[in-house]
């Protein structure tokens, strides 16, 4: 699905990613953990095409295409979805309006006709049921006056509507109560299939109990310093990130 090679990136001249190698086969879910400031969101943002990060070295191949050469909207149309750590509020643009624009953009990109209004609303009805949102909520401005948990549900709702090939979910599980966590987890599992892959950025093992990842990676100071199976999450939960200094030394050598 996606292959990241020796990715270096900086913001305002400050290096943040310092050589990331990551391979995610079709159908797999990979978790990325790591302490605050290690570069997880930076990696996610770069995959989605945020321009303030400058890629100084390396490459990203997605479904055989050079991902970094595509504009953010083209990436979205190619099936990349970013679940934001901090979803923005856009008063005045309803969730429905945004989604119709998004669905139509995708269809246009693939040379398909616009979505039929009735069909679209049926899709909305079906997906809001999965995430426990009301019609009233989706008619409101994008994330307007939503609580932290509601914003994360909304990210999952959008993901379900857009059915991406690669979902990059940046701490979609942070700040959620257990019910909301289950909603988020079931949303992710619902899309799990041999032709879709997911990158889960998380701080908590709790999510990984509901969405069991194929691999877990630890990002530290802009590098992946350790990778393993789901059990790595348990180790990290027990030991914290204290031993990462030595891991990093090992990774550099």
């Amino acid at each position: 699905m996606i292959s990241i090679k020796n990715l270096h990136a900086e913001v305002e001249g400050k290096p943040i990613l310092r050589g990331i190698d990551l391979e995610i086969p079709d159908g797999e879910v990979h978790a990325i953990m790591g302490p605050n400031g290690s570069g997880k969101s930076t990696l996610a943002s770069i995959l989605a095409g945020r321009e303030e990060y400058e890629v100084t070295e390396g490459s990203v191949t997605y479904k055989g295409k050079e991902l970094l050469e595509l504009d953010p909207d083209e990436r979205a149309c190619e099936g990349v979805f970013l679940g934001f750590q901090y979803p923005v509020e856009i008063p005045g643009v309803s969730n429905l309006y945004l989604l119709r624009a998004a669905v139509n953009a995708r269809r246009k990109y693939h040379g398909e006709p616009e979505v039929d209004a009735v069909e679209f609303m049926q899709m909305v009805q079906e997906k809001i049921a999965h995430v426990g949102m009301s019609m009233d909520m989706v008619k409101r401005g994008v994330n307007e006056d939503f609580s932290g948990g509601e914003k994360k549900r909304n990210e999952i709702f959008q993901m379900l509507m857009l059915e991406p090939s690669l979902s990059v979910l940046d701490e979609t599980d942070s700040g959620l109560d257990i019910d909301a966590l289950k909603v988020v987890a079931s949303g992710i599992n619902r899309l799990r299939s041999p032709e879709r892959s997911t990158i889960l950025v998380t701080h908590y093992k709790r999510l990984l109990e509901h969405v069991v990842p194929d691999r877990v990676h630890v990002l530290y100071q802009g590098r992946i310093v350790r990778s393993g199976g789901p059990e790595l999450a348990d180790t990290l939960e027990e030991e914290g990130y204290a031993n990462l200094e030595t891991d990093e030394a090992a990774a550099t050598s």
Partner: peptide
């Protein structure tokens, strides 16, 4: 950026 990340040009 949020809108672009959803596919809008």
């Amino acid at each position: 950026f949020y809108l672009k990340s959803r596919g809008v040009g």
